[in-house]
Write a protein that binds this DNA or RNA. Structure first.
Lengths: 113, 113
DNA sequence: CAGTATCCGGTCCGATACTG
DNA sequence: CAGTATCGGACCGGATACTG
């Protein structure tokens, strides 16, 4: 009968699918840092590289393209010379910030953090 | 799609570390689903396999061990025959739920979700 | 029931070199 | 400045087989 108690479990109403999808988006090395570095103000490509010295250009480009395609951030090309490109969070991307902050807080308390 | 965040890499000089660390924890295929499936009530190993038919025993074991080591969930062995093991979220793990819910909500609105 | 052991293909990421 | 191209090694996760 403890089986009976257990049978009724569905966690919450709803679909778990978006979960994996969005967490998949946040995954990938450097992704959270990128979002974090854009949270205060827009940044340019090279500025982001300075913020995260260890990231390679290739990976940074890949992440930015993915996040842009998903609507998390926007890319603005300024027609200057030399070219200048600015990245900024969208409203949707900004919605992630509180969640990320919460997760970071939990991260602080991890046993093997 | 795989959820990946290398833990050995990117020592990033920064101070955003808890962020990456915790997101690294949530990464790895199936991790969010596991936490979600434990959110309502404790579950046993095979019950989790039923909840997520596509996960392999190897990966499920790996995830559970990691989450346990981090203090996100607890493992209780019941001295029955056949053996029975119950997994449940810790208080710390429960703190992740609102953040995960928020992220899932954003996931719903992703352009290429 | 609750795992372990092993193999293996696919992916991710870093390093390096090059370009409009 | 803001990328692209390519290579190679690390790692991840699925499939399968086996165990106390």
């Amino acid at each position: 009968m403890s089986l009976k108690l257990r049978k009724n479990r569905s966690p919450a109403p709803g679909n778990i699918c978006p979960l994996s999808k969005c967490l998949a988006l946040l995954s990938g090395a450097w992704t959270p840092e990128i979002i974090w570095n854009l949270s205060a103000a827009p940044r340019r490509f090279t500025e982001l590289r300075v913020d995260m010295p260890a990231i390679s250009a290739k990976v940074l480009t890949t992440r930015l393209r993915h996040l842009e395609a998903s609507g998390i951030l926007a890319r603005h090309v300024m027609p200057t010379s030399p070219p200048s490109v600015e990245y900024s969070l969208t409203a949707l991307g900004a919605e992630l910030l509180p969640a990320i902050a919460t997760i970071a807080k939990v991260g602080d308390q991890l046993k093997f953090g």
